[in-house]
Structures are given as C-alpha cells and as structure tokens.
C-alpha cells in the first residue's frame, strides 16, 4: 500500500516543471559553489588553498560547501509538496482513494525523499564534472582525487549529504503538514534555517548543540565547529523521528476541510 502511495506521488513529482527546475536548480547551485571555490582558491590563505583542493577530498569539497543551500532548497521543495495538497484541495481526492492516512503520508514522504535524493545525486555528478574542469583551469592536480582514499572521501561525504537531505526533507514535510500553506511553510523554513538559528546561536551560548538546522548541517559537513558529526547525527535523528511522529499524529487525527 505504501508502494501505491509512493508511485502516485512520483506521478506528480515527475511533472516537467518541478522535475527540471529541481534537478537543474540543485545542479546549478552546487556547480556555482564549486566554481566560486576554485576561482577564489589561493596558494595560501583565503577560504581554501589550492593545496587543499588537491587533497583526496578536493573533488567533493565544493559540493559539501553548498550543503546549506542544497538543504534549504530541499526543505522548501519538501514543504511545498505536502502543503500544496491542502491549498490545491487535492488531499481530499487522495484520502478518498487511500483512507489509511499514515500509509498515504509514508508513501508521500518516501516519494519526496527519493525525488530529492535523486536530484542531489544529479547535482553532485554535475558539480563533480565542473570540479574536474575547474581544477584543470586552475592547474590543481587531481591525481589524489581518483585514488582509493579519494573515492572513499567522495562516497562518505556524499552519503553525509544524502543523510542531511533526508533530514531537511522530513523537517520540511512536517512543517508543510503543520502550516498547510506552501508559501508560509517555505518562508518559515527559510527564515529559521538561514536567520533565526544563526541569531540564536550568537545570543544564547550552547544552543548550537540542540538546534535542528545546525545539527543537520554538521552531518552534511562531516562535523562542524562546535557540533561534531556524532552529536549532529544523534540530535538530527531525534528531530527527524519527532517530526515524523508529530506529522503523522496531526495528519491522522485532523479533519480535512480544505
């Protein structure tokens, strides 16, 4: 039954406007970060050095730096996919066809998550190709990238990005479920992730340990300043589980009047 809801969700997700804008948008964002990183790299100092880019993880470092942007975009798309069912009124059609609401929500979440993971994979492939071209352009040696260590770094860091994308997607869908408005959900999500958390971290010491955006970003980055990878993974997982439970409880119990 979840498979039916998943397949139905994918019928909607693969509409050309959403499909191409998401895939090309994420690819463009990741590629832009790679180009900026390679163009700004110096022999010493700056945000990154040419020597650092020549390391085994140099291939993927640009994509990882784009984690916040990729996460925010994933969050927004996920929130909009759930909330728009209310604003369009399509939810009532779906619930007549699949009255088991938890099943419908699970299929929908799986559909959106796989969609965003595929978009992330596409973006990563494009960004990696851009990185190879940019490396040649800046004269950065790439031999270390294509070693066993390089590939291990590549897959580990892309795996972390994928886990973070799942986290952002789930939080986005949960928020979309609560506010039931695509625009409102995206605005709240963006404001929280890009502004509110940063302000909180600056004015309230120690909050970075417990904030959802900071925790998930730590996972995406393989560990961040103040929040190590393990703690980020644990706190992020708690937020994801709570978000799924709360969204399911609200969805199952609420009246659908839209």
């Amino acid at each position: 039954m979840i498979w039916a809801a998943f397949a139905s969700e994918w019928t909607k997700l693969r509409r050309p406007t959403l499909f191409f804008s998401t895939f090309l948008g994420l690819a463009a964002a990741a590629s832009l970060f790679v180009i900026l990183l390679f163009s700004q790299a110096r022999a010493a100092g700056g945000i990154v050095t040419l020597h650092q880019l020549a390391q085994p993880d140099g291939l993927v470092v640009g994509v990882v730096r784009a984690a916040t942007l990729l996460g925010v975009v994933a969050f927004g798309i996920a929130a909009a996919q759930v909330a728009s069912e209310y604003s369009l009124g399509t939810l009532r059609q779906l619930l007549v066809r699949q009255p088991r609401r938890a099943v419908l929500l699970a299929g929908k979440m799986l559909g959106v998550i796989t969609f965003l993971l595929l978009a992330l994979c596409f973006a990563a492939v494009v960004a990696l190709l851009v990185a190879v071209a940019a490396a040649h352009g800046r004269g950065v040696p790439t031999s270390a990238w294509f070693t066993g260590t390089g590939f291990a770094d590549l897959f580990r860091e892309l795996g972390d990005l994928a886990i973070a994308t799942i986290g952002y997607s789930v939080l986005g869908m949960a928020l979309g479920q609560f506010v039931r408005s695509a625009v409102f959900a995206v605005i709240i999500g963006f404001a929280w992730l890009l502004a509110v958390e940063n302000i909180l971290m600056r004015i309230v010491p120690g909050t970075h340990y417990w904030l959802p955006g900071a925790s998930i970003l730590a996972v995406a980055s393989g560990g961040a300043e103040g929040v190590n990878y393990g703690r980020g993974l644990l706190v992020g997982a708690v937020y994801v589980v709570v978000a799924i439970a709360a969204a399911t409880a609200v969805f199952v119990r609420s009246d659908v009047t839209a």
Binding site: S8, K12, R15, P16, L18, T90, R97
Partner: peptide, 17 residues
C-alpha cells in the same frame, strides 16, 4: 487536481494510489 499535470496524468496518479 494538479494544475500542471494533464487530465490523464491526474487520473493515473489517483489510479496508482
């Protein structure tokens, strides 16, 4: 229904569900 899907695709989404 979903505005950007065709009538047929909209019904296919419901049929799959």
């Amino acid at each position: 229904f979903y505005p950007q899907l065709s009538g047929r695709e909209n019904l296919k989404a419901l049929a799959r569900l």
